[in-house]
Amino acid sequence: MTDLSHIHAAAAPRTRLAGRLKLALGVFAIMAVVPPVAQALDEPFVVVIATRMMIFAIAALSLDLILGYGALVSFGHAAYLGFGAYAVAILSRAGMDDLLIQILAAMAASAVFALVTGAISLRTRGVYFIMITLAFGQMAFFFFVSFSTLGGDDGVALAARSTIAGMPLLQDAQGMFYATLILLIAVFAGLYRLTLSRFGRVLTGTRESALRMEAIGFRPFPYQLTAYVIAGCLCSVAGVLLANQAIYVSPAYMSWHRAGELIVMLVLGGVGSLTGAMIGGLVTIALEEGLARYSEHWRLGFGMILILVALFSPGGLSGLLRRLGLVRDGK
């Protein structure tokens, strides 16, 4: 008889990828119809909440690259949200309101910070890596707290949202929503391709066993550092959007509490799964907004939900969808 084991082995990854992509496309389709549905229901604030959900989905996606695929638990990742937000504030004061310029400036600043701090942090392992990334994140936080010309600890309000090619496309809620959706799709698509590439496979291999990767000729450090820089740059994009959505910038965006919330998003959605990370970001903000309407003690309810997910679905919500058969592969 013909041995079909190699055919099944090759088909399994394709099945997983197809399931992952279908789930992501479904999420994008649902998000795309939020504004017209909200308008029909006369609930315009839903569009504002959905925009915030997508912003944090971008931040969660960026963190999943290093935490989910590289097993690098960074507690300073929220610093890049701050770099993106303050790039908007600083450039706006200098008369540069174009969104693309602000994104490029935010990514450049984040790349430099990530390259320097990552080169140091990645020489440590385990809890030492966690603590040193936390220390660098807090250094950035306190730098902007002492930045008195931009409001210090109180933050600063922006005069207006950014423009796109000179046009005020972000001034209304729907324009802001669809610009964020486009960037979310772009970030997901870019990371999706990256994780399927040779680079992504090596990064995943270092997560499983760095010693084994070294034994077959791959040095983990350059791959991990590159992923660390890419993740920081992408998170800064979320920071640029967050500043525009709130029309306000504050050092609170980059506190260690925010970094912890990003990790919670991955745990809730599914670590090591881009679709899970995106779902985790969307659902976390939705739960926060929804529970806060009913009680000021909403964190208690959110904590109970997180515990239930951790106990009964270790793969997060994406894993739960797979187990329920709603998606052939939730990853």
Rank of each mutant, 00 (worst) to 15 (best):
C235H: 02
V46Q: 12
S62P: 00
V37K: 06
A71R: 14
L300F: 11
V145W: 04
L169G: 07
I263H: 00
F45H: 12
T204H: 08
C233E: 14
F28G: 08
F28S: 13
I216V: 15
A105V: 13
T15A: 13
T204Y: 06
A12T: 10
F302Q: 15
L158Q: 07
S92K: 02
I55C: 10
S146D: 14
L317Y: 05
D154S: 14
M265N: 02
I132C: 01
Y128M: 09
V34N: 01
V46N: 07
T133A: 06
G217P: 05
I247Y: 02
Y86A: 06
A79Y: 01
M131W: 03
G272C: 11
R219H: 09
T15K: 12
Y178D: 13
N244M: 09
R328Y: 04
A157R: 13
Y228R: 07
K22S: 08
S318F: 03
D97L: 15
T149G: 04
A18L: 14
I279S: 00
G217D: 08
D153L: 10
Y253D: 07
L134G: 03
S273T: 05
R212E: 03
Y69K: 07
L191C: 09
G217H: 10
G232K: 10
T117M: 03
L268T: 01
V27A: 11
T51P: 07
S250L: 10
D153M: 07
S121K: 01
E43F: 11
F136D: 01
A29W: 09
L41E: 07
I66Q: 02
A286I: 14
G239W: 04
R258Y: 07
M176K: 11
Y228C: 08
S148Y: 03
H297P: 00
V116H: 05
M107I: 02
M31F: 12
A50M: 12
G166T: 08
G84E: 07
L115Y: 09
A165I: 11
R293E: 13
A165V: 12
A277C: 07
